[in-house]
């Protein structure tokens, strides 16, 4: 007969919560403090490299939502197609990444940013130059491990103190 079952569990539990009282809270206070997302995160936008794109239209075909609209024209002098309009309506996008996986020329990448909410519907439609990569629109390493290596490693809740800010 073991000497137990008389409230020891309750006392142990109370001791656990009491210890929590003296620990640092793990809450991340979002707008002020931010965790670094995964290097392979699928952010809330697409990044498109106009120089690599061959206007093949594979991405538009792969998209289950019909988000991508491409208008192309032939350029007989250089013997290739050119993109006249590359339009991504991120309002419909489910950020599945299928278009990125489909693109044969590493021309289309997932964005790394996530705060992309807008007040107007037309603001979430990105066209041509708006899609180009820039410091404000970094590309994520989704599908491309080499790109991922260049990004800062993900921070977890417990490492928050090292994040600073």
């Amino acid at each position: 007969m073991k000497f137990e079952h008389f409230g020891t569990g309750i006392i142990k539990g109370l001791a656990v919560t009491l210890r929590h009282l003296f620990r640092k809270p793990i809450t991340t206070q979002y707008p002020e403090q931010k965790l670094t997302t995964s290097r392979r995160a699928r952010g809330n936008e697409l990044v498109w490299d106009i120089t690599k794109c061959t206007a093949c239209g594979t991405c538009a075909k792969a998209c289950p939502q019909g988000v991508i609209r491409i208008v192309t024209s032939a350029k007989p002098v250089e013997n290739r197609y050119v993109v006249e309009k590359f339009e991504v309506d991120t309002g419909y996008c489910i950020f599945c990444g299928l278009c990125v996986e489909a693109c044969p020329f590493q021309s289309l990448l997932m964005g790394y940013s996530y705060e992309r909410a807008k007040y107007r519907r037309h603001e979430v439609v990105h066209t041509n130059e708006m899609l180009l990569p820039s410091a404000k629109r970094p590309a994520s390493g989704y599908m491309y491990p080499k790109l991922a290596k260049a990004l800062p490693p993900q921070t977890l809740l417990i490492e928050r103190d090292e994040v600073k800010g």
Partner: peptide, 11 residues
Amino acid sequence: IGRFQIRLGPN
């Protein structure tokens, strides 16, 4: 309760 659960609670 927030502090007992390592949270901050409303602040």
